[in-house]
Computed example of a mutant assay.
Amino acid sequence: MAIQYLAIVAKIEQKQEELDRIKAQIASENVPGLITYRSFMYALYQDFKSFVLKYIYQENRAFIYWAQQDNKLNITDDSFTGLGLAHSKLKGDIITKINTYSDPKQQLTDVMIKLLPDARQEQFQKFKTDRTITFNIPTDDVNFLGWSNVMLTNFRIYINGAKMASNDKLYVQLLHQGHVLIVDPAGKVKDFSHNRVSSVYQYDIVDGKTHTVAGGSLGGDTTGDNSKRIPLSPFATFTVNVPDRFNPEANLDNVDSIEIHFAGYASPTKGFRKKRALAQ
């Protein structure tokens, strides 16, 4: 993708050189009142084209994310008509992938990540006072071994040991930082960046059992505004917050673990079962 980006930059630089040449020619004609106007219009035209090219590049990256496959970006016609056609095609391809990304993937219903104080003593101590903790899920995390193209759509999160408020509800925020790694079926790791995603989850405890009150959407399904957001890769940095504003009576002094339960879709990694059988 870096090569494609450099190609677009080279195209922009080439157009800038052409613009400079034309501006010089117009200036040499010395037409009163016309030189400044034409120069402005040419500059505006070029700036807008650069803007469009940049976003078509990002649009192509979005398609690659949804499709989980390489897609070489070819701009054969860089007129606004040609750029409009390129945009329309990419938009249609992205919508198709959004509507079919879970097929033929397998559904992941409950993948649990558990944070324990044994390996995070300092973090847990700060969490009890600051009410925030950050962690990273690496691509070799045992909970996702054997899976590729993992896309998370929902989550549940429990702060075990927390003393609930008087209404027995706890409001938790899960922040996905945006820079992600994705493992394709061949085991190749690719990196992407998107906007940070903030999601919330609220639960209570009834008869000793946790019960979802609200929230839990990450992206990519039909829950609330989830369909407007991309599903998320687990191989990223997350932050868990228990905001004072929504949990004024909560006490975290006795927190002994944090559980995050993820759900979504994934594809089996090629050869994983064979490698595991040989290892045994």
Rank of each mutant, 00 (worst) to 15 (best):
Q106R: 13
K163D: 05
S39G: 12
G187K: 02
V150T: 00
E13P: 02
P243C: 04
K128W: 12
L170Q: 07
A2I: 07
N254I: 06
T269D: 04
Q69S: 09
Y101S: 04
F238S: 01
T129F: 11
V197A: 12
R273D: 14
H194V: 03
N154Y: 09
Q58F: 12
Q69L: 07
N167H: 01
D225N: 07
V189C: 09
E59A: 11
N136V: 08
N251L: 07
P248V: 01
L19D: 14
S50R: 08
L175Y: 13
F155Q: 00
S50A: 13
D225F: 04
V240G: 04
A2L: 06
A24P: 00
A119M: 02
V31G: 04
T222L: 14
A162T: 00
L53K: 01
S217D: 14
Q46Y: 09
P231R: 05
Q106A: 08
I22L: 15
L73V: 09
K97V: 03
Q121S: 15
I159H: 11
E59N: 09
L90Y: 08
T269M: 13
S148I: 00
K89I: 01
Y65S: 04
L19T: 14
F63N: 04
S50W: 03
N60H: 09
I157R: 02
S148A: 06
L116P: 01
F235W: 03
T210M: 06
G92V: 08
V183M: 10
S50E: 04
S227M: 06
N74M: 12
D168P: 01
D130G: 04
K188S: 10
F80M: 13
L175S: 13
D110P: 01
T109A: 14
I26R: 02
I98F: 12
S148P: 02
I64S: 05
L6W: 08
K91M: 11
N143M: 11
I56Y: 06
K126F: 15
L6I: 14
G215T: 03
G178A: 04
V200S: 13
T139F: 03
Y201Q: 02
N226K: 09
V189A: 10
D204E: 12
A236I: 00
I95R: 14
A43P: 02
D253W: 11
A266V: 07
Q46W: 05
T36V: 09
P138T: 12
Y42I: 07
Y158S: 01
P268D: 00
Y65M: 03
V183I: 13
T223A: 08
M1V: 10
G216I: 00
I159A: 05
I12L: 01
K126R: 15
V197G: 08
K169R: 12
A7C: 08
K188Y: 05
N71I: 07
